[in-house]
């Protein structure tokens, strides 16, 4: 159980770092907002994944 929790937190942390770095590297433009939205949804999905799995099974 501890291994599963560790893997979950590592996934979330990696996605957070990825979103932050992607947000830095994205050029200023009209598509930046949409890219940030997609990154945000990805992070949200990673955080809620265990709950969603519990609800849907």
């Amino acid at each position: 159980m501890m291994d599963a929790f560790t893997a979950y937190i590592k996934t979330v942390t990696a996605l957070t770092i990825f979103s932050a770095l992607a947000g830095i590297l994205l050029p200023e433009g009209k598509y930046r907002r949409y890219a940030e939205l997609v990154l945000g949804v990805m992070v949200m999905e990673a955080v809620l994944e265990p709950l969603l799995r519990l609800l849907l099974t």
Partner: peptide
């Protein structure tokens, strides 16, 4: 996780 969160200006997690 806390350290990773503080990277960006906008709080992520």
């Amino acid at each position: 996780l806390e350290m990773a969160d503080h990277i960006s200006e906008k709080p992520i997690l």
